[in-house]
Design a protein around this nucleic acid. Structure first.
Lengths: 215, 215
DNA sequence: CGCTACTTTGACGCTCCTCAAGTAGCGTGG
DNA sequence: CCACGCTACTTGAGGAGCGTCAAAGTAGCG
C-alpha cells in the first residue's frame, strides 16, 4: 500500500502498520507550524498523516535544529517505545492526522506476535532511513545532499510536485544553510535537471542527472 | 546489566537482549580489519562483542565510507530484520564475538511477546543513537564532534581508555578528515581537557570542558 | 634496525557559511 | 483594485572552517 493509496483508499481514521496491525484512532487537525508533540512530553499517541505534512526534529542544547524526517500523507510517525518523546513534531502546513493511543499498540503487540513484528518492521525501516541520512550528512557535499533530497521526495510525491517545506526546513534536514540550498536549486535548474516554475513547485526533468549528482 | 558486566559476568556464549531474551550461540574470532558481515550478504546471525571492538558502516556508491557505530565488549550488533545486511561490519582489532542464528531470535520473538519487546527495545536504542548521530553530523563543528565522540566513548570505557579505533575510523564516524580529527585532539590536550600520553591512549581530564565544547 | 602504517603539523585552497541587499509572492486593509 | 507589509526566497561579496596536499615525526613489528 503506497502513500498515495493511503490517502485515497484507506479508511480515514485507521493506522495500518501492516497486514496484522490496524488500529482505530481519532482525527485531529494542526495549523501550520503547530506542535504535534514535543521533546519530553509523555508519548501517548502514534500518528499517521492524512493530509498536509509533518517535520520531525531534534534540538541541540544550544538550540540548533536537525530535522530527522519529513512525513507525507499516508506515512506514520511518532511511534516511540519510551514513555517520553525524545523528538519534536510540527505541522509544515495545515495538516490532518489520525492519532492512536500508544496503549492500543502495546496491547496489540503483547497479544499478537505478528502485530509486534509489524511494529518491528516499521522501526527497521525508520532505522534504515536514518542510516542513509547519516551517510548524506557525513559524507556528501551540498549539491549531492540537495539532489538526494529531491530524489527522495519525488519518489513519494511524483515527477511534478509542490514542496510542503520551506528552504529553511530543507536546510535543517540536510545540515546546510538556506542560502546554500537555494543556490543548489538554482544551479540544478540551470542544468535542466529540474524545473522551478515557482520556488515550491518542482518538476523533475532529468532524473539521471540528479542521480549522478547525488553520487 | 552494563557493558562491563557482560564481559566479566555473563556466560561467554550467550547473547542477552534483556530479561526475557537470552540466546545461546557460538564464539568466533576475527582478525584486525577482517569483515564480520558485508552489505548484501544474507543476514544469518546477530552478534555480541566479547573482546576487541567492531565498526559498522555504510558506503556510498562511489566508495565513501560512513561509520555508523562502534561496538565495544558486551554490546550487540548486526540485528537486522531484513534477510540481507544493508551494512558492513569489521573487526577494529583482534576480536572475539558470540554469534547467534537469527532464526533463534525470530522463533523467540514469535513465541514470547516479552522477547519481541526486548528486540524492539534494542531497535529503539539503536534508533535513538542514530538520531543523536544525525544531529552531530548535521549541525556541529569539528571540535564539537570530536568532543561528543570522546564523551560517548568514555562513558563506555571509563575516564582513562585505549581507543580501539584509528583516527581514520573516528574521521569516518564524525564526517571529518584524519587531519581535522588529529588537530582537534591536539587542541583539546593543549586546553587540558584531555591527556594524550600516546595517540590511542586518552585520559579525560576535564569532562565539563568537553561537555561545553560539545554544546 | 629498518620497514610500514599511523599520526602530527604546516601551508594553501575550496566549499560553504555569514552578512547584506534586493526580489517575489501573498494576505490585509485602504 | 492597488498599496502596503510581511515572509520567503534569491543573489552577491567576503570570510571562516575544514579539506587537500605535502612532509616530517612516531610507534609497532619483522
Amino acid at each position: 500500500m503506497t502513500a498515495l493509496d493511503a490517502t485515497t483508499k484507506a479508511p480515514a481514521d485507521i493506522i495500518d502498520l501492516g497486514p496484522a496491525l490496524s488500529l482505530r484512532g481519532t482525527r485531529m487537525h494542526f495549523e501550520r507550524n503547530e506542535e504535534i508533540f514535543g521533546e519530553g512530553e509523555p508519548a501517548e499517541y502514534l500518528y499517521r498523516v492524512v493530509s498536509g505534512a509533518v517535520r520531525v526534529m531534534r534540538f541541540s542544547t544550544d538550540g540548533r535544529r536537525q530535522i530527522l524526517s519529513f512525513h507525507l500523507p499516508g506515512e506514520v510517525f511518532g511511534i516511540e517505545l519510551a514513555d517520553k518523546h525524545s523528538l519534536t513534531a510540527e505541522a509544515l502546513d495545515s495538516t490532518e492526522v489520525v492519532m492512536v493511543r500508544r496503549s492500543l499498540l502495546e496491547k496489540a503487540a503483547a497479544e499478537d506476535a505478528r502485530a509486534a513484528r509489524c511494529w518491528l518492521e516499521h522501526a527497521s525501516h525508520t532505522l534504515d532511513n536514518a542510516r542513509d541520512h547519516a551517510l548524506i550528512l557525513g559524507r556528501k557535499g551540498a549539491g549531492e545532499r540537495v539532489a538526494a533530497f529531491l530524489l527522495g521526495i519525488s519518489k513519494r510525491l511524483g515527477q511534478e510536485l509542490d514542496l510542503p517545506m520551506s528552504r529553511a526546513d530543507i536546510a535543517d534536514y540536510l545540515g546546510l544553510t538556506i542560502e546554500t540550498v537555494s543556490r543548489a536549486f538554482t544551479e540544478m535548474e540551470r542544468q535542466h535537471a529540474i524545473g522551478l516554475p515557482s520556488s515550491r513547485h518542482v518538476v523533475m526533468r532529468n532524473r539521471s542527472t540528479l542521480a549522478m549528482a547525488a553520487a
